[in-house]
């Protein structure tokens, strides 16, 4: 499908608000692009049909008023013939237009079939209330990566995301990249997309899943293939060793306090899968599934009172004396 109407549409809507990195009208890959062009086609046809219908209504009303005002004589038989023809033509046109739309949709569906034969990347996403766990599978178990709350993909090749849920029904939706897929417990489904250029795209949970459905976002980070290999290599490494005594004390606090009961950091004894994995926490752009930008202050606020930021979340408030908090932040800040 030609890119020109796409471009024109995007330009036209650019001024109408919305963030470009989380919009179905700013496609960044072939899947979303196919849907966007289908949308513009449908919009054009719909507008024409609508204007025709409302126009016919307005004309009919105006003409009838004029006829009554002028006291013109009516010819019921002729009127009946004309109306029969008009309604029949209208009905036939409706059928033709709808058929045309259906055929166009079939073409789009064909273009959007999962390209399993081509080279592709497989990633597994599991939805939880209210965070995402991401697994990058590999035949060799030591090369597998478990991550959370940020999805890293390469550009230029198809990405097949196998989605499932741990608890209730969620839905993964990255509007720039593809339509959504529901994450249903005990079902595994596949969402596929391909990203054209590197960048960070917004995704969000799109199926009501409880109190914090609104704050379950997932940044999708697309790397050029070479950069992606580098990222994957870094992700496979265990957690960075603490650089100074304060960070070492922070690690002690992490392991001996409530943190290790729910969070895993590879390379340490902490291995719980209840909450998000924290091995490379400091390299993430956001905290708490896209709720806060990552940073020392936000992390401190989140640790001390997550219920204020995301009421209902499973993470409890952790009261730490200031020195311990500083140490913990120093350690977590080093987990690149």
């Amino acid at each position: 499908m030609s890119a020109r109407p796409l471009l024109l549409g995007c330009v036209a809507l650019a001024g109408c608000g919305g963030a470009r990195n989380q919009s179905a009208l700013a496609p960044e890959g072939p899947v979303a692009g196919e849907v966007a062009s289908l949308w513009w086609f449908a919009l054009a046809v719909a507008t024409a049909v609508y204007l025709a219908t409302v126009g016919a209504l307005a004309w009919a009303a105006w003409r009838a008023r004029r006829r009554a005002a002028r006291g013109e004589a009516t010819d019921p038989a002729r009127d009946h013939r004309r109306m029969t023809v008009a309604v029949s033509v209208g009905g036939a046109l409706t059928v033709v237009i709808l058929l045309g739309f259906f055929v166009r949709d079939l073409a789009a569906a064909r273009a959007l079939r999962i390209p399993v034969t081509r080279d592709h990347v497989k990633i597994r996403v599991t939805g939880h209330q209210w965070w995402w766990s991401i697994e990058y599978p590999h035949p060799d178990p030591s090369q597998r990566v478990t991550d959370a709350n940020e999805l890293h993909v390469p550009t230029g090749i198809p990405v097949l995301v196998e989605v499932t849920s741990h608890d209730v029904i969620h839905s993964l939706w990255a509007p720039n990249l593809a339509g959504k897929k529901d994450l249903i417990p005990r079902y595994v489904d596949t969402l596929w997309f391909q990203v054209d250029r590197p960048g960070v795209y917004g995704a969000q949970c799109a199926e009501f899943c409880g109190h914090q459905h609104a704050k379950m976002a997932l940044p999708v980070v697309a790397h050029a293939p070479r950069d992606y290999a580098g990222w994957l290599a870094r992700a496979r490494r265990p957690a960075a060793e603490p650089s100074d005594s304060m960070a070492r004390r922070g690690r002690e606090i992490f392991l001996s306090g409530p943190c290790a009961l729910c969070h895993a950091i590879t390379g340490t004894p902490a291995g719980s899968r209840v909450g998000p994995e924290l091995t490379h926490l400091a390299s993430r752009r956001t905290l708490a599934a896209g709720t806060l930008p990552n940073g020392k202050g936000n992390l401190a606020a989140w640790i001390l009172d997550p219920q204020r930021i995301k009421p209902g979340t499973a993470m409890p408030a952790t009261a730490l004396p200031p020195a311990d908090l500083e140490a913990l932040l120093a350690y977590l800040g080093g987990l690149q």
Partner: peptide, 19 residues
């Protein structure tokens, strides 16, 4: 009615479903 017909398309619906 027109937006309803648009959503009959699976591809389009997957973008606008639950929005």
């Amino acid at each position: 009615g027109i937006t309803g017909v648009m959503q009959a398309s699976v591809a389009f619906d997957l973008q606008v479903h639950d929005t």
